[in-house]
């Protein structure tokens, strides 16, 4: 036996109030969530001058921030190399070990070679390279485009 459920005026009003409440709730939630989302900050493409680059000897390194991210710059025999200093495992900062010619992470003993490739330890990926530009006496490092 087929019975069509009749919508009462009270039932319709209940439904309408529920729908309006849901829309109003959503309308208030979305701006709230957007507010919580971190506001974007500029600087991703900035080029940072390496202070004292001219005085660096082959094998020496320096860690600096580029666009708010740590970058390690190593002076090689032929020029400068730059990589993200954040270990790709869990984000600790790698250091350049001059004698061993590799990058080492102090947290979980990861080792990267001079080109940023993983030699040993848990990192899932190599150290991302950064771009070096030498303009006259000055040396700049920036994130890859």
């Amino acid at each position: 036996m087929n019975q069509t459920k009749k919508t009462t005026r009270r039932g319709f009003l209940d439904w309408l109030i529920a729908a309006f409440s849901a829309v109003a709730g959503l309308a208030m939630t979305i701006p709230g969530l957007m507010y919580l989302w971190p506001a974007a900050k500029g600087g991703a493409a900035e080029a940072v001058e390496i202070s004292g680059a001219g005085q660096m000897k082959p094998g020496q390194s320096v860690t600096l921030q580029v666009g708010g991210k740590p970058v390690i710059v190593v002076r090689g025999r032929t020029g400068f190399l730059a990589f993200s200093a954040s270990c790709t495992h869990l984000g600790c900062l790698v250091t350049w070990e001059t004698q061993k010619k590799h990058f080492a992470c102090p947290c979980h003993a990861a080792v990267f070679d001079a080109n940023g490739g993983v030699v040993s330890g848990p990192p899932p990926a190599p150290l991302p390279p950064y771009v070096i530009k030498e303009i006259g006496e000055k040396v700049y490092v920036s994130a890859p485009a």
């Binding site: 860690t63 600096l64 921030q65 740590p70 200093a85 869990l90 600790c92 900062l93 992470c105 102090p106 947290c107 979980h108 848990p122």
Partner: peptide, 23 residues
């Protein structure tokens, strides 16, 4: 210091099992 990680940092004791398992 955002530019220097101290050696062998470890979490609080209640995170040590997860910390070790992750390795």
């Amino acid at each position: 210091n955002a530019l220097s990680t101290p050696a062998h940092i470890k979490p609080e004791w209640y995170f040590l099992p997860s910390y070790q398992l992750l390795k």
